[in-house]
Simulated assay, not measured.
Amino acid sequence: MRKKIKVRKRRDEIGTIGKAFDELIGYMQGMGLAAAAIAENDLTTHVIPRSDKDELGNSFANDRPPARCGGAYQRERQ
């Protein structure tokens, strides 16, 4: 844990990469929670894409496969 803190405080490329990985990990954890909620048919989950190029975020925000598939999705899961 202590090494992670040292990496984050660095003011060079290594520190920049460490911070980027922290952001990536946070993003993936959030998307994992959203995916788990959607998998449990919780369609109240609201995902805000980080940009127009955020394919995963845009997919969750726009597609909502369980809602589009309706009963067919539920029958397949049972």
Rank of each mutant, 00 (worst) to 15 (best):
K53M: 04
I48K: 08
V7Y: 05
Y73R: 15
I38P: 00
I5Q: 13
D12P: 09
P49H: 00
M31V: 02
H46D: 12
N62P: 01
S59I: 07
R2M: 08
G18K: 03
L56H: 04
L43K: 02
A39Y: 05
L33A: 15
D22M: 01
A39I: 02
D52K: 08
L24Y: 11
E76D: 13
A72I: 15
A61T: 04
I48Q: 07
D63N: 04
L43T: 07
A72R: 09
R75T: 11
E76S: 15
A20C: 04
M28S: 07
Q74M: 14
D54K: 00
F60R: 00
P66Y: 02
Q74H: 11
N62L: 13
R77H: 10
N58C: 04
D52W: 04
M1Q: 10
I38F: 00
G71T: 11
I14P: 05
Q74D: 15
D22R: 08
Q78V: 09
M28E: 11
T16Y: 05
D52H: 04
G26S: 04
D12R: 03
A61R: 05
R75C: 05
I17P: 01
T16E: 15
K6R: 10
A35G: 03
R68F: 06
R11E: 13
S59Q: 07
F21I: 11
A34N: 06
D42R: 05
D22N: 11
Y27D: 01
G70K: 02
G32A: 05
R75L: 10
G18R: 03
K3C: 00
D63F: 03
G70R: 03
E13M: 14
K6H: 08
K3E: 10
R50A: 02
Y73Q: 12
E13F: 11
G26T: 03
V7K: 09
K6N: 04
R68G: 00
N58F: 03
K4L: 14
I17Q: 08
